[in-house]
Amino acid sequence: MKAKNNTLTLDQFKDKNYGVTGTEKRDALEAGYADFKLGALLHEARLEKGLTQQELADKTGTTKSYISQIENNVKEVKISTLKKIVEVGLGGHVELSIKL
């Protein structure tokens, strides 16, 4: 459905500019969004806990630079490292799901 004022919804914009879901260009866009979302979630959780990047790095045995790179989607993180950051550093837990 087209939004008012001849604007496109986000899905319409993505369909028009990146192709439909399942095309290479669209899938690359969606994969990049998932990486960005993870970094943003970690950033938000760290702030909620009142921790600086340095404090989180100290708690998890990493570096401030590494935490920053993850939060800013510059560096990918292994699941084991993500688990350590979330559980040890933030006192939370990681839940993963696979959708087919």
Rank of each mutant, 00 (worst) to 15 (best):
E48H: 13
D58P: 13
A3W: 01
G92K: 11
N73M: 09
Y18G: 02
L56Q: 14
E24L: 09
E55F: 13
G61Q: 06
T7Q: 05
K14H: 01
Q54M: 13
L41Y: 10
G39I: 10
S80K: 15
Q54I: 15
L51H: 10
A3D: 00
G50E: 02
V77P: 07
S68W: 14
E95A: 12
A45N: 03
K83M: 02
L38I: 14
N5R: 07
L42H: 05
A57E: 10
R26G: 00
Q69P: 08
E24Y: 09
E76W: 07
D15M: 12
V77T: 14
M1P: 02
S80A: 13
S65M: 07
K37I: 12
Y18D: 00
E44H: 12
D35W: 09
V20N: 01
L38C: 11
K14C: 01
Y18E: 00
Q54L: 15
L38M: 14
V20Y: 02
A40G: 05
R46M: 01
T9F: 01
H43I: 02
G92S: 05
N73Q: 10
E48A: 14
A45W: 03
D27E: 06
E71V: 11
K4E: 01
I67M: 08
G39K: 10
L10N: 07
D15G: 03
S80E: 09
L29N: 00
D58G: 07
K2Q: 04
L10Q: 08
V77I: 15
K99R: 15
L56V: 15
Q53A: 14
T21N: 01
V77L: 08
G19S: 04
A3K: 02
K78L: 04
S68N: 12
Q12W: 04
T21M: 01
A34C: 07
G92A: 09
A45D: 00
G32P: 02
L56C: 15
E76M: 10
Y66M: 03
T9Y: 02
K59L: 14
E24R: 14
L8W: 08
S80H: 11
V74Y: 13
T21D: 00
K16D: 04
